[in-house]
Design a binder for these strands. Structure first.
Lengths: 336, 336
DNA sequence: CTGAAAGCGCTTACAG
DNA sequence: CTGAAAGCGCTTACAG
C-alpha cells in the first residue's frame, strides 16, 4: 500500500541495507549513493515505518508519560515542559492517564511495553511506586512528584522548603497565630507542606498557637475551612493554605463574612496559579514552575537513557520554589 | 531479554500461533488450551510487544493527535475530552504539537506513519489543511476546529452561530452601538465570529454604527482595543470581544479609565474561560464545551475507522455553543 | 563501500 | 482445533 524501504532501494538501484544506512546517516555509504538515496526517498515521500524500525532496532524514540490525569492547569503546564524537551530531542510522547485507579495505572504501564524507551511516572500511590509500580523492571523511569523514588530516580517540588519559607515570611511580617489549611493526607506535597509549616513554627520560641484544618486541595474545602477558622474561639492573624485553590476558597469565605484581607487576617497559598494574581487582594504564594518540573524530569530520564549504567544511587532531586509576595500578606500593623 | 510469545508457547506446550489466537480471543481455541495459555501468560507477566503486533496486524490501537500546542486551558480541555473517549475504547494517544510552524506540522504528521490508525488534526493553516496537510492520503483523519475539511471530515465550534446569538443578545438588551474586537485574521474562529457579528447587526433596520478593532485573542490586545474604543469620537454602548481574554483586557482598560461596566458600556466575550466568572462584573460570554469538541472529534474518527468506506461526503459538523449571561451585559437603562 | 541474510515479535492465511 | 511457515518493514552483524 504505502512506500517502503524496498521501493526506495529498487528506484535507487541499491540494496535495502544501503538505503537504511544512508537514511540513518551511517558513515559507510558512498557520497554519491547517499545523495541518490535521499533524492529517491524525497521523491517517493518515503517515511520509515516506525513499528518496523523499532522492532528491529529496539529503540522507539518515544517516552511514555503516565499521569493521574491529563487536564487542568497543573498537567497542562507539566506537559508543556515535557513536550518542549521532548521536541528538542526529537522524541515522541505516548501519554496515558489512569484517573486515580491503581489498576488502570498498572495497565497503562504494561501497555507501554515495546512502545517507549523510558517512562515518566507520576503516582500518588507513593508506597507502591517504588519497585512494583513499573511493569518492566528493566525500563528506565523517573518518578515525578510522587515522593521518594526508592529504586527509581525521583524529582519532587520542594514543598517542604517552600512551606517553611512561607511560614517564615508570615512570621517575619508580624503574624503569630498562623492557621494552616492542609491538603489531602495521601498526597505527598500536602504532607510535606504541613511538615514544613510545623517545623518552621517550632523554631519560634514561646507559645505559638497553631491550628490545622483538614482540606483536600479543592476550593470548596478552603471555603469551609475559612468559615471554620472564623468560628473558632481565638481567631488567627494569618492563614496559610496548602494550595492556592483552597486559599481562594478561604478568601471567598472571609469576604462573605466581612473579614478583610490582609487587614484582619493575612492569607497565603502555594502554587502561584494564574488566578492568584487576579483576585483581590492579590494572593501571596509560592511559585512552582511546573513546566520546569516536567522538563527537568525528562532530562533526568534522558541522562539515564544515554548513560546506560545506573551508577550508584538514583538521583533524588528537589525543584526549588519561589516566594511571591502580594497584597494578601501585607505586614501587620502593630496593634493600636 | 523480556518475555515473548515464544516463552509462553514453550511453557504452555503449544505453538506461538495458538498463543496468539488464545490471547486475542479468537474462537478457534480449545477451552482447556485457552485456559492454560492465559495462566502461563499471567504467570510470566507476558505483555505482547506492541511494535511487533502492529507491524504484522497493521493496526496500532493508537490515534495521533497533532495540535498547534499542548498547553493552556484550551488544549488541556481538548485533551481531556479526547482522552476520555480514547480510554473508553482502549486506544492510546500519540500526541504532537508543532508550535505554529508548518514544517514542524508536516514532520509531525509524517512521523505518525506506522504509529497510528487515525489522526486528529488541528491546523490553523486552513487552506493547506485540506488535502496536502496529511502526510498519508490513506490515513483516516478528522480536522479539528480548522475550518472546512475539504476532503476530510471536520468538526468546528459554531463560532458563527454563537456570534450571531451574542450580538442578538446585546441588541435585545437595548444596545445599539456595538463595537467588536476581532481575533487574528488567519484564525478560522476569529473570522467566523466577526462574520456572525456583522450578519446579525445587518438584520437590524436603521443605521447601526459598528466599529471593528483588530485584535489577536491576547489580553493585551483587548486592553489596547478598550483604550481605542474609549478614545473614539462616538463611544459605543456595548463591546463584543471575539474571545474572553480580550474581553478581560478590555474590562481592565475600562476600569482604569473609570468607565463602568455594564452601566456605561456593556461587555461580552466568547469561550467562557474560568476567569470569566471570577472577574467583576462577571463576564457575559458564549460557553464552548472544549472537552466535548475533542471527544466528538475522536468519535467521528472512530466512525471512519470502523465503517471503512468513506460513503459520500465527509461529515462537516458544528459544535453548538451556549449563551451565558452575567453582569457585564445587564439590560441597558433607558436614557434618563 | 555494499549486499544477502538473519532476525526483531508478532499475526494470519494455509493445510491438516 | 492446531501448527508450520510466510510475512509485516525495518536494522545490523557478517562477508566480501
Amino acid at each position: 500500500m504505502s512506500i517502503t524501504i524496498k521501493d526506495v532501494a529498487r528506484e535507487a538501484n541499491v540494496s535495502v541495507a544501503t538505503v537504511s544506512r544512508a537514511l540513518n546517516g551511517h558513515e559507510n555509504v558512498a557520497a554519491e549513493v547517499r545523495k541518490r538515496v535521499f533524492e529517491v526517498a524525497d521523491r517517493l515521500r518515503y517515511t520509515p515505518h516506525h513499528a518496523a524500525r523499532s522492532l528491529s532496532s529496539r529503540r522507539t524514540q518515544t517516552v511514555g508519560v503516565v499521569l493521574p490525569d491529563l487536564y487542568g492547569e497543573f498537567f497542562s503546564e507539566l506537559m508543556r515542559g515535557i513536550d518542549a524537551v521532548a521536541r528538542s530531542h526529537g522524541l515522541h510522547l505516548l501519554v496515558s492517564s489512569y484517573h486515580g485507579d491503581p489498576d488502570e495505572q498498572a495497565s497503562a504501564l504494561r501497555a507501554m511495553r515495546g512502545r517507549v524507551d523510558g517512562l515518566l511516572l507520576m503516582s500518588p500511590f507513593a508506597s507502591e511506586a517504588g519497585h512494583g509500580g513499573v511493569a518492566d523492571p528493566g525500563m528506565p523511569a523517573v518518578l515525578l512528584n510522587s515522593g521518594a523514588g526508592g529504586a527509581l530516580p525521583a524529582l519532587n517540588v520542594d514543598s517542604y522548603g517552600g512551606a517553611r519559607a512561607m511560614t517564615r515570611h508570615l512570621l517575619d511580617t508580624g503574624h503569630r497565630h498562623i492557621a494552616f489549611i492542609a491538603g489531602p493526607e495521601d498526597n505527598h506535597d500536602a504532607r510535606e507542606r504541613l511538615r514544613g509549616y510545623r517545623d518552621e513554627l517550632a523554631t519560634v520560641p514561646g507559645a505559638v498557637e497553631s491550628r490545622v484544618v483538614q482540606g483536600d486541595f479543592e476550593e470548596a474545602a478552603g471555603h469551609a475551612a475559612g468559615q471554620e477558622v472564623l468560628a473558632g474561639a481565638t481567631r488567627p492573624d494569618a492563614v496559610f493554605a496548602a494550595n492556592d485553590m483552597m486559599a481562594l476558597g478561604c478568601l471567598f469565605a472571609f469576604n462573605q463574612a466581612g473579614v478583610r484581607v490582609p487587614d484582619d487576617i493575612a492569607l497565603a497559598g502555594f502554587d502561584d496559579i494564574p488566578l492568584a494574581r487576579y483576585v483581590h487582594p492579590g494572593l501571596t504564594t509560592m511559585r512552582v514552575d511546573i513546566a520546569e518540573l516536567g522538563g527537568r524530569a525528562l532530562r533526568l530520564l534522558l541522562d539515564r537513557l544515554g548513560g546506560e549504567g545506573t551508577d550508584g544511587t538514583p538521583a533524588d532531586e528537589r525543584l526549588p520554589v519561589e516566594l511571591v509576595i502580594r497584597e494578601s500578606s501585607r505586614k501587620r500593623r502593630t496593634a493600636a
